[in-house]
Write a protein that binds this DNA or RNA. Structure first.
Length: 866
RNA sequence: GGUCGCUUAGCUCAGUGGUAGAGCACUACAAUGACACUGUAGGGGUCACAGGUUCAAAUCCUGUAGCGACCACCA
């Protein structure tokens, strides 16, 4: 056998990926009689390369796909990429600026051309990385959210909603990024608290009858103040509401009005109202029909004609504070924790800004989406995220879908000379709708990325042009994603799917954990805490990386990535490799035949295999990969390698006996490899290729999930054999206590009791020459008792009596404590009466065993005089 | 402020009512015919805290604390 003694992933992984792809295994067979299983992957942004989070998310989907293939499904996983408007535009802008090119000078068309160039580079990188990870996705069906077909789908949705009145244009306060100069969604912002100041400013009454003190963290916005509000219940302002105030510095007249918004408990209870630069003030402004002057421009510079015009918001703040102080309006300044919003893309503080934007009405679209989850048609895993989703959907607000960008789906609204707006697939169509009124321009804005990715599950399948795939492949089976985009993506796909296809987009939503650094910090490129998955793959292989992450993925909300754990995974690969090598070496190219008779250890292993199969299958079905990986690891390393192979070595050395253990091992490892394949596709494929056997599939990937015959389940074999193993452990411990070399054969040992045929297992596994039934009379012995068996080792020469005595004393203490505890329990009549009978029986047996062992250990201590 | 989650061995985490577990790390031993990326043995835990339910609680209930995530308009 030409297998090396160390597993080298780099020699194996790429080879098999190419072989699978060449064999067409990533594509579903149309017209197959198998049931369909479909996933449309979350399209990664084309902003560079994949990170550790992707190395969890996509292998999970690959795992599910491989598992379902093994389970007999016709699996289709449709990959793709998201144009990711703002994220991509900002990446490309940065690159251009580094080359000394100003995007603004380039102009819209040239800039978009540059982004397409980048899309090619980043897209190729990402696909290459998916391949490195071993993801079996159908590349022939790959989609990009700006493909022509996809654009048609997006425009179709827009036009439909526009015509139904679900999309409207309006002035609202939105999150404005002054650097990128666009509105951004809530998901693209981050809440932070910074140390700032709270300025208390005097607003005098016009008639000179006093003043109102107003607190603000943003004095520069006072340029846009149109009122001061107090809570109607606030008695401090009784009789004052309705009077006119004079806005400091500008001397504008503004009213003091009553509104429920101000909290009387906070500060003076009086709030200055700047409707154009604060969402709450905007609401107050609407309630009272106030003017809404915009005083900051898209770059967050003062645009109101006044002495501060042209200053940016922070310069203006300084100047205004200085002027307020100088003119005696500033009462005091306090340190204050200020909550702010920061744009994730630019790092800039968001400026709430009143501007003209497009919105989608959400309430009526949300209703079917709420019902779908409430009724259980869509099922969140872990379940708790269903509640998160519902809380959001039940309080949903209209969302802003327009972005002031160049990269994206341009809003298909065309305006006529007279200002009428028509939504259309193209200008000609718009003109048709407009009749004689000439179309003069198209809306400049583009759609928010989430608007287009919301169509993903059906738009990637050709909707609206061709819908023939949909009956078979929609709803898709599972959506796998992280919790950060439940609202902005998952919710939208559900709403859009329900509205356009009339059916849920997926049955299960599997929310996976976030990959963190070893010390629990966020992985981020800018913080330097990111780990590049491709480097890890290069070092230890994709299988080991997959195992590292997948074996930690369950219902937890966080996974800590550490290099140390990748070593565990690499070691596991190596262990599998070497065990397989050992089995193959013993097979000598022969195929073992199914034996007529199995020994109990054989039955034990097959029973353990059966139990493992059930556990693993159920865990995979439940998307609990951690719960699948653990029994696989345990079965393989502990049960197959540490016990079964070791126990079988004597039979392997006897040509007349070797067929049976070889058949059992081959059966076990073949099943094991198939079950492990979804987690570690490459190494399992490589080893499967070396396995002998009839009925082998061309690839492990196209194998069938192991059918475990009912007769493999054998509780009594498990019980018998595990009892032997316990005795082996006890004998080994006894040897260690005597400072005997591990595995150096000791010539003779004695036992009393009924081993039920386990003599040979005990003898070989505890490295004993002769195991004799008897008391070993007249010899110096060290003994132990468990499982109803007394084990005696003759002691040669001098032993350390003190140490042995201490050991026995500790053991006796523990036994005696246990004995007391259980005895007390059994003396409690309520326990006997109310506990389940099998528990009582178990405890009775236990206490008898403890008593027996206690008696014997006491006798031994007396005998040794320790 | 609200919701959700977490708190178990030095570390990372399993464990849904019946004598506390795994991997790693640590200690001792072992170049033995699959594997030193190995094997054998060992030390190490008042299961965050306080109440309650129960014959019996790491596990179920209530509350508290710390950490984390999400939601929320405190100027």
């Amino acid at each position: 056998m030409e297998l090396t003694s160390k597993y080298d992933a780099s020699l194996v992984e790429a080879k098999w990926y190419q072989a699978w792809e060449a064999a067409g295994l990533f594509q579903s067979q149309p017209g197959s009689s198998k049931p369909s299983y479909t996933i449309t992957i979350p399209p990664p942004n084309i902003t560079g390369s994949l990170h550790m989070g992707h190395s969890l998310c996509y292998p999970i989907q690959d795992l599910i796909g491989r598992f379902k293939r093994l389970r007999g499904y016709s699996v289709l996983i449709i990959p793709g990429q998201d144009h990711a408007g703002i994220a991509t535009q900002s990446v490309v802008s940065k690159q251009l600026k580094q080359q000394g090119i100003q995007p603004a000078e380039l102009g819209r068309d040239k800039f978009v051309e540059k982004v397409w160039e980048w899309r090619q580079i980043s897209g190729d990188t990402i696909i290459q990385q998916f391949r490195l990870l071993g993801c079996a996705f159908d590349w022939s069906k790959s989609r990009f959210t700006l493909d022509d077909d996809y654009v048609t789908a997006v425009l179709t949705v827009f036009i439909d909603w526009f015509n139904k009145g679900l999309i409207y244009r309006g002035k609202r306060v939105v999150n404005w990024d002054p650097v990128l100069q666009t509105s951004v969604s809530d998901i693209e912002t981050e809440r932070k608290t910074i140390n700032g100041k709270l300025y208390h400013v005097r607003y005098p009454f016009q008639d000179g009858s006093g003043e109102v003190i107003v607190a603000t963290t943003r004095p520069e916005t006072m340029l846009g103040d149109v009122a001061v509000a107090v809570n109607p219940s606030d008695s401090r302002y009784d009789g004052l509401v309705g009077k006119t105030l004079l806005l400091p510095l500008l001397n504008r007249e503004i009213p003091l009005l009553a509104d429920p918004y101000p909290d009387p408990e906070f500060g003076t209870g009086a709030v200055k109202i700047t409707p154009a630069h604060d969402p709450n003030d905007y609401e107050v402004g609407r309630r009272h029909n106030l003017e809404m002057p915009v005083v900051l421009d898209p770059k967050a510079k003062v645009c109101l004609p006044c002495k501060y015009e042209g200053m940016d918001r922070y310069e203006a703040r300084k100047a205004i504070v200085a002027d307020l102080e100088e003119q005696g309006f500033l009462v005091k300044v306090e340190d204050h924790q200020i909550p702010i919003l920061v744009s994730e893309r630019s790092g800039e503080v968001i400026e709430p800004l009143l501007s003209e934007q497009w919105f989608v009405k959400q309430t009526e679209l949300a209703a079917p989406g709420i019902e779908a989850v409430r009724s259980g048609k869509i099922n969140f895993v872990p379940e708790r995220y269903g509640k998160v989703y519902l809380d959001w959907m039940e309080n949903i607000r209209d969302c802003c879908i327009s972005r002031q960008l160049w990269w994206g789906h341009r809003i298909p609204v065309y305006y006529t000379d007279s200002g009428q707006a028509f939504a259309a697939l193209n200008q000609e169509d718009a003109q048709r709708q407009a009749g004689t009124d000439p179309i003069v321009r198209q809306d400049e804005d583009v759609l928010d990325t989430w608007f287009s990715s919301g169509l993903w599950p059906f738009a990637v399948q050709g909707w609206p042009q061709s819908e023939e795939n949909l009956p078979d492949r929609y709803p898709t089976d599972v959506l796998v994603t992280d919790r950060n985009i439940i609202y902005l993506w998952v919710a939208r796909m559900i709403m859009m799917g329900m509205d356009f296809i009339g059916e849920i987009p997926f049955k299960d939503v599997c929310i996976h954990a976030t990959v963190m650094t070893e010390d629990g910090r966020r992985m981020s490129k800018s913080l330097g805490t990111g780990v590049d998955p491709t480097e890890v793959i290069e070092k230890i292989g994709a299988d080991a990386l997959r195992y590292t992450l997948l074996s930690q993925a369950g219902t937890n909300q966080e996974i800590r990535y550490s290099e140390r754990r990748t070593e565990d995974a690499r070691n596991f690969c190596n262990k599998i490799w070497n065990a397989a090598r050992f089995i193959l070496m013993n097979l000598e190219g022969q195929t073992p035949t199914k034996p007529d008779h199995l020994e109990i250890v054989d039955q034990w292993l097959l029973s353990r295999l059966a139990a493992t199969e059930a556990q693993v299958r159920e865990a995979y079905e439940a998307y609990d990969f951690q719960r699948a990986a653990a029994p696989l690891y345990q079965f393989f390393w502990s049960e197959l390698c540490d016990w079964y192979i070791e126990v079988s070595k004597s039979r392997l050395n006897d040509p007349s006996q070797k067929n049976t253990p070889l058949w059992v091992m081959t059966t076990a490892i073949r099943s094991f490899l198939i079950m492990l394949h979804p987690i570690m596709p490459h190494i399992t494929e490589e080893l499967y290729a070396h396995l002998p056997g009839e009925n082998k599939a061309p690839f492990i990937m196209s194998e069938a999930w192991p059918e475990v015959p009912a007769e493999f389940h054998n509780a009594s074999a498990e019980q018998t054999v595990e009892r032997w193993f316990n005795l082996v452990r006890a004998l080994r411990a006894l040897r260690a206590d005597l400072d005997l070399d591990p595995k150096k054969e000791i010539p003779i040992a004695y036992f009393e009791g009924d081993l039920a045929g386990g003599e040979e297992v005990l003898r070989t596994q505890a490295w004993i020459g002769q195991l004799i039934h008897g008391t070993g009379d007249n010899q110096k012995l060290v003994s132990t008792t468990l499982e109803g068996i007394d084990l005696h080792l003759p002691v040669e020469g001098v032993i350390d009596l003190d140490r042995l005595g201490a050991k026995l004393a500790t053991e006796e203490l523990k036994l005696s404590a246990d004995f007391e505890k259980i005895s007390q329990r059994l003396e409690n009549p309520q326990f006997i009466e109310r506990a389940k009978p099998e528990i009582v029986e178990k405890e009775k047996a236990l206490v008898e065993d403890l008593e027996d062992r206690l008696t014997k250990i006491r006798a031994r201590r007396a005998l040794l005089g320790v």
